[in-house]
Design a protein around this nucleic acid. Sequence first.
DNA 1: CATCAAAAACTCC
DNA 2: GGAGTTTTTGATG
Length: 164
Amino acid sequence: MSALDHPYALPVSTDHGLFVAQYSDAGLAGLNFPFEKLESVSSAVPKTVAAWHKHTGAAVKAMLAGKEPKELPPLVPAGTDFQQGVWRELRRIPLGQTRSYGEIAAAVNRPRGAQAVGQACGANPIPLLIPCHRVLAGGGKLGGFSGGLDWKRRLLTIEGVTLC
DNA sequence: CATCAAAAACTCC
DNA sequence: GGAGTTTTTGATG
């Protein structure tokens, strides 16, 4: 994992732990799952970032409650063109539904690029708001998840997805 | 060139 | 037909 240095990092307290949102000057650039220890967070931020963070906090809490976030901050994940395309497709998945890596691959015109889609999902800097957890492997298998498969199962359960 | 959060094809019971 | 293994495939560092 490369250390992405984003200008601002702010905590998001939830019932499931303390997330850390990272912002560039263009919007939300990263969202970290709760980990053992936290890196330094920014104490003072511009009002624009504060406004984004308010939306981020509400959105994250909404997601963890199984609801669709009402309002999102600008999402500005850094990545290649292919990754951006995949992430855009991921955001089109309705809450509580799942797609397969192959489906996403087809949607971005890479009919046989399922594994590449998997990589793009793994490179997703903003879990939850870019719902990479809604992407399963073929046949309803779980696949994998950056923050641990435990999180993926938990998130899907929250959204009402029943696993085989 | 090696790796990866996949999928289809192919084998063998 | 089903479970396990091998091949194919695409983006990334």
